[in-house]
Amino acid sequence: MHRGLKSLLAAAGVALVAGCAAPSEPQVTFYSHGRSVQVAPAQYCDPTGEDCTTSPDAVRDLRVPPRAPLQVSVPGEVAETPWQVVFLYRGVNGEELDGRSPVFAPGERHAYTLQLPPDGAHLEHVEVQQFSAVLTQGVDGGVDFGIGGSWVLDVHQR
């Protein structure tokens, strides 16, 4: 076979394989106290909210010592859209409390550091939420944005 034809066929084969590869879903990285974990989305939708995949097995675990911060890093696909961090924690009296970061505007940031109050509260659950372009009627008369992607982390103290 002619050397040029072999090269052309090899290049076509590589292009065909590359063209068939599905784009991977974005991963969110959680980091605390010298350890990190990459988390696949538990839910991920196209921008219209029409085509969604769910993966309940995507929930990951990470040990976060009391009073230690948790750093959250999102890839460009998430940072280019509105997103926020929501979390559950236990107060010193054992009461379950929740909180959330501000909603970050598209392109505003790729990372967020979650720091609980220094009174001994224990972080239990964290979720990164990526907002979609889908709007729904809000209970207060306004509009709510749908959640197009979510990355979930369960936190352990020991």
Rank of each mutant, 00 (worst) to 15 (best):
R3P: 11
G4N: 06
L8F: 10
L8K: 12
L9A: 12
L9M: 10
A10W: 15
A10K: 13
A11W: 09
A11H: 05
A12N: 02
A12R: 11
G13P: 06
G13D: 13
G13W: 14
V14H: 04
A15L: 15
A15D: 03
A15C: 04
L16V: 14
V17F: 15
A18E: 00
C20Q: 15
A21V: 14
A21D: 05
A21L: 13
A22V: 13
A22K: 08
S24N: 04
E25D: 11
E25P: 08
P26I: 09
P26W: 12
V28S: 03
T29Y: 10
Y31H: 11
Y31Q: 15
S32F: 02
R35Y: 00
R35G: 01
R35K: 15
S36H: 07
S36F: 00
S36A: 14
S36P: 01
V37I: 12
V39N: 07
A40V: 00
P41V: 02
A42L: 06
P47C: 06
G49R: 04
G49V: 03
E50G: 12
E50D: 14
D51C: 08
D51G: 05
P56T: 02
A58E: 09
V59S: 04
V59D: 02
D61H: 11
D61M: 08
R63I: 10
V64F: 09
P65L: 02
P66K: 06
P66A: 10
R67W: 00
A68R: 08
P69G: 00
L70T: 04
Q71L: 04
V72G: 06
G76K: 12
V78C: 01
V78F: 14
V78D: 05
A79Q: 08
E80Q: 15
T81F: 09
T81I: 00
W83L: 01
V85D: 02
Y89T: 03
Y89E: 09
G91H: 11
V92K: 12
V92E: 13
N93D: 15
N93P: 00
G94S: 12
E95V: 14
E96Q: 12
L97V: 05
L97H: 08
R100D: 12
S101P: 02
P102K: 15
P102R: 12
V103C: 00
A105E: 12
A105D: 08
E108N: 05
E108C: 10
R109C: 07
H110L: 08
A111P: 00
Y112H: 13
Y112A: 01
L114H: 09
P117A: 08
D119P: 08
G120K: 07
L123R: 06
E124D: 14
E124G: 09
E124S: 15
H125D: 15
E127M: 14
Q129K: 13
Q130Y: 00
Q130A: 08
Q130V: 01
Q137G: 11
G138E: 06
G138M: 03
G138A: 14
V139D: 13
G141T: 09
D144P: 06
F145D: 07
G146M: 04
I147H: 03
G148H: 03
G149T: 01
S150C: 03
W151K: 01
V152Q: 10
V155K: 06
Q157G: 14
Q157E: 06
